[in-house]
Each structure stands twice: as structure tokens, then as C-alpha cells.
Design a protein around this nucleic acid. Structure first.
Lengths: 201, 201
DNA sequence: GAAGATAATCAACAGCTTGTTCATAACATT
DNA sequence: AATGTTATGAACAAGCTGTTGATTATCTTC
């Protein structure tokens, strides 16, 4: 048998396992899921699971890495100039919108992994990714002297806020479109939450 | 034996169990901790654990509830007027500062529970508490028409940002004082992250 | 269509954790 | 010293884990 065909069969099984993990995490959270549960629900042999993953933590890690890889790729495809369209203009940054579209595409997994039954380490990873990719770059373009607060707290504030809003958006059924969400986030980040609340009229 | 004495002995044991949980979570995360680990490290009988807690999830829940209760009480002690000192002035709100002092006091537990090996549900609880306690009140004092963004996203943005910064502060060894942190958060929230970064000079 | 290779199944295993139940020991007040 | 409560110790069935060896199913290629 050639490799491609094997890959096909393997990948089908792996996708089945990962999708089942998402479903079960929704019910019981990651902790509550046993390999037995998973393989029974997926209707595969328990041995098959161990053929592809070391244990359930390995499965989670691989699933998360795939998402992270997707985001990194997505960002790399746009970077050249648009990523920095942020600095001066108030226009919604297209990279953030792409991010929302990507999350929408993988909504099932993202929702549960970022939710209250998910993996707190993933949230940290995601925030770090946002910091590294977006904020760090911008931070270097600004004079340190102009900063009213230490950079680390600024980047933490913004990335945590973004991830939080994304989580809430997923949790409440994604009623706004990605472009609407991008605009909402841009307003609050650029004008400030206080101004956005109408406090400074 | 009177109740007080019994309570003392029981509470000593319970505190021992909870402190040991904090230590073990730091190493292995909540998932990785077994009741056996816990009782061995605490040097108590495994049966004693089950005398006080249904299982390890019950232990976690009780530990979290105690913290939440502490925060609620702390907020209720101040509420009358100061809580709203926020709306018009740029001065650091004293309630937030109290919050930081409280977290500093319980730093060990807060650090691990909010960290990458912690409980994502607690983060959600904490954010909801902040929203209910602080933001909701403020939101009612503002004309809905003045809002540039839907209230839900505003409160999510601010509460997620705050919890994120608190987590980062704990993670990096609490080098700034509670009052410094309060000021930093106030600046970013009132003036906006963009302005605080020096983007709008 | 048959041979060969890889993937999936099945059953069984020791090892571990869990939560419970007894009887017994330690403890602090009166 | 007597009493009531808490802590200990040992033992139990039940469940999940990760591994192994043998067998069957599936797909490509000749």
C-alpha cells in the first residue's frame, strides 16, 4: 500500500477521534473524558487510539497545535503591510477579521477549548501568539517614552481582552459577523473602553 | 468535646489539605493531582480526605467558593460611594486596589488557579463577578445611545483585560504594588490602550 | 484478481486510582 | 477518667490505563 492511501485512512480515523473529543469535552470537559468513552462513542477499538496517540494529553496537544499552526499560517499570508494598517488609521485591521473567520470555521473546537471546560494553557498560548504576532510589532514602532504604562501590561491587557471577547462571541452563538466584531474590537482598543461606553461625552 | 474545639481540629486538617492542593497543582495541574498524592504529601490518611470532601472536585469547588466569598465580602464593605468614583474622575478606584491586595494575600492559590494549569471555569466565574459587581452598575448610569459598542462586549472586554493583567501580575512575581497596578489599569481603561501606548500623540 | 503492506480489531494483562466500609486509635473537653 | 468526635489503618470491588500478541479488514500494485 502506498503512503498516500494509508495517510487517507489514518487521517480519517484521526479526524474521527478529534471530532469525538470535541463532542465529549462539551459534555464532560477534558478531565472527564476517558479514552474508553472516546473510543466507544467513535465506535473504534481502544487499541486504535493508542496506535495514533500516546494518551489523551497527546491528543489534546496535537489538536491544539493544528489550530495554532493554522493561525500562524493565516497571519503569515497577510503580514507584509496590512498588519500594520493599525497604527495610524482607525480602520478595522484585516488580520483580526481573518482571525475571526478562522475561529468561525473551527467554532466547535474553539468554543470548547476556550470555554470553562477547556484548557487554560491554550488560552495562554493564544494570548502569547497574539502578543508576539501583532502587538510586539506595534510596540517596537512606538517611542518607549510615550508609553503611559509598561509595555508588558499593555500587551497583556489588549490580548486578554481580545481573547475574552472572542470567547464570549463563540459562547453566545456568533451572532455578529467577523467584520462587525473586528470593528467593535478596534473601537474599544483605539478609542478606549471608557470612550466607547460614552463616558467622556 | 465542644463544637469550637472540633471545628479547630477540622479546620486545621482542611487548611492542610487545601494548601497541599495548591502546592501539587503548581507541579502537576489539577488534573494530575490524585487524592493519594495529596494525602501522602499532607501526611494524612486517605480516609480523612473523604471525611471532608466528596472527591477532588468537591475540594476544588470549596476552595474556589471561599475565595469568591472573600471577594464579594470585600466589595460589599466598600460599595456605598467609592465604587462609583470611577465614572467621572481618572483617579484609581479603591475597590480595584482592594482587589489587588486581596489577591496578593492569597497569591499562591490565585496564581495557580488562574494560571495555565488552573481551572478555566474559575476565570469565567471571576470575570462574571467583576462584570456583575463593577461594570453592570456603571453601565446602567450611561445612556445606551452613547454606546459605540454593545454593552456585553464592552463588559467582556474590560473584565477579560483586567483578569488577564491580574494573572500576568501574579505570574511575574507581583513586582508592582497594588496601587501601581490599579493606576495602570485605570489609565488603559479610561484613556484606552491605544492612547496609553502613545499612539495618538 | 491475487499478493503484500498497513491499519484496525479483539482479548487479556498488570498496575494504578477511586470511593466505601469496617474496626481501632488518638484527641480534647467536661 | 468518661464521652463524643476526628483520624487512622486495612481491605474491597470497580473502573481506567497502556501494553502485548494474534487475527482480521482494507487498500495499492503487480
Amino acid at each position: 500500500m502506498t503512503e498516500r492511501a494509508a495517510e487517507k485512512r489514518v487521517n480519517r480515523t484521526k479526524r474521527l477521534i478529534r471530532d469525538t473529543l470535541t463532542e465529549l469535552m462539551e459534555e464532560k470537559g477534558f478531565e472527564g473524558v476517558t479514552v474508553r468513552d472516546l473510543t466507544e462513542k467513535a465506535q473504534i477499538n481502544r487499541g486504535t487510539f493508542y496506535l495514533h496517540y500516546r494518551d489523551k494529553y497527546d491528543l489534546l496537544e496535537q489538536s491544539e497545535d493544528e489550530i495554532i499552526k493554522g493561525i500562524v499560517q493565516l497571519v503569515n499570508d497577510i503580514k507584509p503591510m496590512e498588519a500594520v494598517a493599525f497604527t495610524s488609521q482607525g480602520e478595522p485591521f484585516p488580520v483580526i477579521q481573518k482571525l475571526f473567520e478562522y475561529f468561525q470555521e473551527h467554532a466547535d473546537f474553539m468554543k470548547v477549548i476556550l470555554g470553562p471546560k477547556g484548557d487554560p494553557a491554550f488560552q495562554v498560548k493564544l494570548r502569547e501568539l497574539i502578543t508576539q504576532t501583532f502587538l510586539q510589532k506595534i510596540a517596537t514602532e512606538v517611542n518607549k517614552e510615550d508609553m503611559l504604562v509598561p509595555v508588558e501590561f499593555l500587551t497583556t491587557y489588549v490580548s486578554a481582552a481580545h481573547v475574552g471577547v472572542i470567547q464570549h462571541w463563540l459562547e453566545t452563538g456568533m451572532e455578529k459577523s467577523p467584520s462587525e466584531m473586528t470593528l467593535i474590537l478596534a473601537k474599544m482598543t483605539l478609542l478606549g473602553p471608557g470612550y466607547a461606553a460614552g463616558l467622556k461625552t
